[in-house]
Design a protein around this nucleic acid. Structure first.
Length: 115
DNA sequence: GAGGTGACTGCGA
DNA sequence: CTCGCAGCCACCT
C-alpha cells in the first residue's frame, strides 16, 4: 500500500528529518519527535522507521538510535549487523550495538534546524 | 467500528 | 542505584 501524498503525515516529516541527518552523525527518536512538536510521540518516530523500508528514497534509519545511543532497531535491518556496518561505514564507531561518543556525534534536528 | 501493537521516553517506587 | 509503569499517535487485524 502506498501512503497518500494528499497531506503530510507524521511519517513524511520523520523521513525528512532523518534524511537531513549529516553523514557520520546520529540522532534519537525523541529528538526527531521533539523537532516535530510531538516530543511525547517518540514511538511514532520508530513506527515511521518501520515503514522506511517501503519509502523512497531509502531513509538512513541506521542514523536513528534510541536515547541511550543503542541500536535498538538493528533487528529490523535484516536481523544482522547491517545497521552497525552502515554506521561504521559512515565513520560512526559502534561497539556492542551501542554508538561510541554518542554525545559527540549526536545531531539534534530541533537545534540544528532551528533558525 | 473497536482493540492491540510498536525501531521510545520520562517519571515514580 | 535499578526496576516498573503510563503516555503518546498511527497502522494492522
Amino acid at each position: 500500500m502506498e501512503p497518500k501524498a494528499d497531506k503530510l503525515t507524521f511519517f513524511e516529516l520523520v523521513y525528512a528529518i532523518v534524511r537531513l541527518v549529516p553523514k557520520g552523525r546520529v540522532t534519537t527518536y525523541g529528538a526527531i519527535a521533539n523537532s516535530l512538536g510531538a516530543k511525547g510521540s517518540s514511538r511514532m518516530v520508530g513506527w515511521a522507521m518501520n515503514a522506511s523500508h517501503s519509502v523512497k528514497p531509502l531513509v538512513p534509519a541506521q542514523r536513528v538510535v534510541n536515547r541511550n545511543g543503542m541500536l535498538t532497531g538493528k533487528h529490523h535491518f535484516g536481523g544482522s549487523n547491517l545497521m552497525q556496518k552502515l554506521l561504521e561505514s559512515e565513520g560512526v564507531i559502534v561497539i556492542n550495538d551501542k554508538v561510541v561518543d554518542f554525545d559527540k556525534i549526536f545531531w539534534d534536528p530541533a537545534k540544528e534546524l532551528k533558525p
